[in-house]
Amino acid sequence: MPVRRGHVAPQNTFLDTIIRKFEGQSRKFIIANARVENCAVIYCNDGFCELCGYSRAEVMQRPCTCDFLHGPRTQRRAAAQIAQALLGAEERKVEIAFYRKDGSCFLCLVDVVPVKNEDGAVIMFILNFEVVMEKDMVGSPAHDTNHRGPPTSWLAPGRAKTFRLKLPALLALTARESSVRSGGAGGAGAPGAVVVDVDLTPAAPSSESLALDEVTAMDNHVAGLGPAEERRALVGPGSPPRSAPGQLPSPRAHSLNPDASGSSCSLARTRSRESCASVRRASSADDIEAMRAGVLPPPPRHASTGAMHPLRSGLLNSTSDSDLVRYRTISKIPQITLNFVDLKGDPFLASPTSDREIIAPKIKERTHNVTEKVTQVLSLGADVLPEYKLQAPRIHRWTILHYSPFKAVWDWLILLLVIYTAVFTPYSAAFLLKETEEGPPATECGYACQPLAVVDLIVDIMFIVDILINFRTTYVNANEEVVSHPGRIAVHYFKGWFLIDMVAAIPFDLLI
């Protein structure tokens, strides 16, 4: 008679799926529990143990900040960024110097990925580790590398530091407007667009060049630039800015003055950032001319202004700041037409079709709590990747769950009947059967004279019903998954307890 339990259901295979997918890609990662103190490590794979030199037993239950890997060259700011990422709910990448158990130093890129439950609360953290440099290539500990984003994938490793954006290309926007319009339909740009040429040739750093990471940081200074100062900065030398009595002219307006920039070969870094931020506020060169004239017309309804409409929906549905990093990277690809469009465009503009998908598509409701890094690593669709929660398995109709209350009560009843059979069957065979043979035949009273025979008949009927119930009862397979398919249940029961239950259900007393 089957006594099969499996009270692990309803099970959740999400954690096993993450481990299996990460292991298949030869990654070095740990999984931490966000619900406990210090976000203790609950799993670390073999790749991480080989990377740091510690065994799994030495890593388990330690804080996922990996303070046991810190050393003299470990930056405090990087460690603080990892700790801050564990307090938030967004994906974050941090470069930090770690030390192995043998004392060797290596520069590592740590990717902190939160995993949320159905309520939107962070319950786990996945920390992925990628070695960037070994100890002989690690720089000085005073050099802070965590304020910069990861290198873009479309640049060669040897040319990542030679990417320079020439400031004269930004200063000569109005001069290039006529050349853009003359391109017409034969050019790649839309009317009114501004073409910015980027020099990728390796050259020595000069005062006129600005690194790509500095251009990325310009967006942080746009908020500090007032509207009046932006307007004066875009007017140009024809209309000098008016300053109040006793007030000095704005240095932001002076930063885009061609006369002032041409007199000296070098520009201050602050002026460069502010000038680029001011130019980015204009949607095209037409807006710059309109600002000089004193009238700013409404933005025209053409394809170039609607190019950012799908980007707005993608940004609203993005799951991490990696989408913004990807957008900034692609927006700086050289030799393309940049349409400086305000994100607050007309909502009635139709979304044009684009061959290049900048932001990841909208994630469906079932995966809105899973970050983009987890979705990318697992390579699963929205119909396959579940949320991290207890999910009731989908069972067929008329199927009994093996952990249901009805099955528990039924098993206790069958257990009592088995005990009765084990006690009274030998007793009936030894004593009652002998008395029946010696006594007179009682054929007239039937079952009324033999109450134990009636009980034995009921017990046999219950055993037959138990066999039928076992054909529709779920079970737990070797992978700790609840199986509810009727065919698989029948095959599993035939290979197991079916023969024993059938022999126990045969009414031998009635056959004798």
Results as ranks from 00 to 15, higher is better:
Pro2Asp: 05
Val3Tyr: 09
Arg4Met: 15
Arg5Phe: 07
His7Ala: 08
His7Pro: 14
His7Phe: 08
Pro10Lys: 09
Gln11Thr: 13
Thr13Asp: 11
Phe14Val: 12
Leu15Phe: 06
Leu15Thr: 06
Asp16Thr: 06
Asp16Arg: 11
Thr17Lys: 12
Ile18Lys: 01
Ile18Pro: 01
Arg20Thr: 13
Phe22Ile: 06
Glu23Tyr: 01
Glu23Lys: 01
Glu23Gly: 06
Gly24Trp: 07
Gln25Thr: 13
Ser26His: 15
Arg27Gln: 09
Lys28Thr: 12
Phe29Val: 02
Ile31Val: 10
Ala32Pro: 01
Ala32Arg: 01
Ala32Met: 01
Asn33Cys: 05
Asn33Pro: 01
Ala34His: 05
Arg35Glu: 13
Arg35Leu: 06
Arg35Pro: 09
Val36Gly: 07
Asn38Ser: 15
Ile42Arg: 01
Cys44Gln: 01
Cys44Asp: 01
Asn45Asp: 01
Asp46Tyr: 05
Leu51Glu: 07
Cys52Gly: 01
Tyr54Ser: 01
Ser55His: 07
Ala57Gln: 15
Ala57Asp: 04
Arg62Ser: 12
Arg62Lys: 10
Arg62His: 14
Pro63Ser: 15
Cys64Leu: 02
Thr65Cys: 10
Asp67Val: 07
Leu69Cys: 01
His70Val: 07
His70Trp: 15
Gly71Thr: 01
Pro72Met: 03
Gln75Arg: 13
Gln75Pro: 05
Arg77Ser: 12
Ala78Ile: 01
Ala80His: 08
Gln81Asn: 14
Gln81Gly: 11
Ile82Pro: 01
Ile82Asp: 01
Ile82Val: 11
Gln84Val: 05
Leu86Glu: 01
Leu87Gln: 15
Gly88Asp: 13
Glu90Leu: 13
Glu90His: 14
Glu91His: 11
Glu91Phe: 09
Lys93Glu: 13
Glu95Gly: 03
Ala97Lys: 12
Phe98Asp: 01
Tyr99Lys: 01
Tyr99Val: 01
Tyr99His: 15
Arg100Val: 01
Lys101Ser: 04
Lys101Phe: 01
Ser104Arg: 07
Cys105Ala: 12
Cys105His: 12
Phe106Gly: 01
Phe106Val: 05
Leu107Asp: 07
Leu109Trp: 15
Leu109Met: 06
Asp111Cys: 05
Val112Asp: 01
Pro114Arg: 04
Val115Tyr: 13
Lys116Gly: 07
Asn117Arg: 13
Asn117Thr: 10
Ala121Trp: 09
Val122Met: 09
Met124Cys: 05
Met124His: 08
Ile126Gln: 05
Asn128Phe: 06
Asn128Thr: 08
Val132Lys: 13
Val132Gln: 15
Val132Phe: 15
Val132Gly: 15
Val132Asp: 15
Met133Val: 13
Glu134Asp: 12
Glu134His: 14
Lys135Gln: 07
Lys135Cys: 09
Lys135Ala: 08
Met137Phe: 15
Met137Cys: 05
Met137Asn: 15
Met137Arg: 13
Val138Cys: 13
Val138Leu: 14
Gly139Trp: 06
Gly139Thr: 15
Pro141Ala: 12
Ala142Ile: 09
Asp144Lys: 07
Asn146Lys: 06
Arg148Cys: 15
Gly149His: 06
Pro150Ala: 08
Thr152Gly: 08
Thr152His: 06
Ser153Leu: 06
Ser153Phe: 04
Leu155His: 11
Pro157Ser: 06
Pro157Lys: 15
Gly158Phe: 13
Gly158Ser: 15
Arg159Glu: 06
Arg159Trp: 12
Arg159Asn: 07
Ala160Asn: 14
Ala160Gln: 14
Phe163Trp: 08
Phe163His: 13
Arg164Gly: 14
Leu165Phe: 14
Leu165Gly: 15
Leu165His: 14
Lys166Leu: 06
Lys166Phe: 05
Leu170Thr: 11
Ala172Thr: 07
Ala172Ser: 09
Leu173Cys: 13
Leu173Asp: 12
Thr174Cys: 05
Ala175Gln: 15
Ser178Gln: 11
Val180Gly: 09
Arg181Met: 06
Ser182Phe: 05
Ser182Gln: 14
Gly184Ser: 06
Ala188Val: 07
Ala188Thr: 09
Ala188His: 12
Ala188Met: 07
Ala188Glu: 08
Gly189Val: 05
Ala193Ser: 07
Val195Gly: 05
Val196Gln: 01
Val196Ile: 06
Val198Cys: 11
Asp199Trp: 01
Asp199Thr: 01
Leu200Thr: 15
Thr201Met: 04
Ala203Trp: 03
Ala203Gly: 07
Ser206Asn: 09
Glu208Gly: 05
Ser209Gln: 05
Leu210Arg: 05
Leu210Ala: 06
Asp213Met: 12
Asp213Cys: 06
Val215Trp: 09
Val215Tyr: 12
Val215Glu: 15
Ala217Arg: 13
Met218Tyr: 13
Met218Ile: 07
Asn220Leu: 06
His221Gln: 13
His221Tyr: 08
Val222Asp: 05
Ala223Gly: 08
Gly224Asp: 05
Gly224Gln: 05
Leu225Gly: 12
Gly226Arg: 07
Ala228Ser: 06
Pro237His: 15
Pro237Met: 14
Ser239Asp: 14
Ser239Gln: 14
Ser239Gly: 05
Pro240Met: 15
Pro241Arg: 11
Ser243Met: 15
Ala244Ile: 04
Gln247His: 06
Leu248Glu: 12
Pro249Asn: 10
Arg252Ala: 05
Leu256His: 13
Asn257Thr: 14
Asn257Phe: 14
Pro258Ala: 14
Ala260Glu: 14
Ser261Ala: 08
Gly262Lys: 08
Gly262Tyr: 15
Cys265Thr: 09
Cys265Ser: 14
Leu267Asp: 12
Arg269Lys: 08
Arg269Asn: 11
Arg269His: 12
Arg271Asn: 13
Arg271Asp: 10
Arg271Tyr: 05
Arg271Ala: 12
Arg271Gly: 11
Ser272Ile: 07
Ser272Gln: 07
Ala277Tyr: 12
Ser278Asp: 05
Val279Thr: 07
Ala282Asn: 14
Ala282Pro: 07
Ser283Phe: 07
Ala285Pro: 14
Asp286Phe: 05
Ile288Lys: 07
Ile288Gly: 08
Ala293Tyr: 04
Ala293Ile: 14
Ala293Gln: 08
Val295Thr: 14
Pro297Lys: 03
Pro297Asp: 12
Pro297Gln: 08
Pro299Arg: 08
Pro300Leu: 07
Arg301Met: 07
His302Gln: 07
Ala303Cys: 06
Ser304Leu: 12
Thr305Ala: 14
Ala307Ile: 12
Ala307Phe: 13
His309Gly: 14
Leu311Thr: 14
Leu311His: 07
Ser313His: 12
Ser313Asp: 14
Gly314Ala: 12
Gly314Gln: 07
Leu316Phe: 07
Asn317Arg: 02
Asn317Cys: 07
Thr319Ser: 09
Ser320His: 06
Ser322Pro: 14
Asp323Cys: 05
Val325Leu: 14
Val325Glu: 10
Arg326Pro: 11
Tyr327Gly: 14
Tyr327Thr: 14
Arg328Phe: 03
Lys332Gln: 12
Gln335Ala: 12
Ile336Pro: 11
Ile336Phe: 14
Leu338Arg: 14
Leu338Glu: 12
Leu338Ala: 11
Phe340Ser: 15
Phe340Pro: 09
Phe340Met: 15
Val341Glu: 03
Asp342Gln: 05
Lys344Asn: 06
Gly345Ser: 07
Asp346Met: 05
Asp346Cys: 09
Pro347Phe: 04
Ala350Phe: 10
Pro352His: 02
Glu357Pro: 12
Ile358Thr: 05
Ile359Asp: 07
Ile363Val: 11
Glu365Val: 14
Glu365Gly: 12
Arg366Trp: 08
Thr367Ile: 14
Thr367Glu: 09
His368Ala: 14
Asn369Asp: 07
Thr371Gln: 07
Lys373Glu: 06
Val374Ser: 01
Thr375Trp: 03
Thr375Asn: 04
Gln376Asn: 14
Gln376Cys: 06
Leu378Gly: 01
Leu380Ile: 04
Leu385Ala: 11
Pro386Trp: 05
Pro386His: 03
Pro386Phe: 05
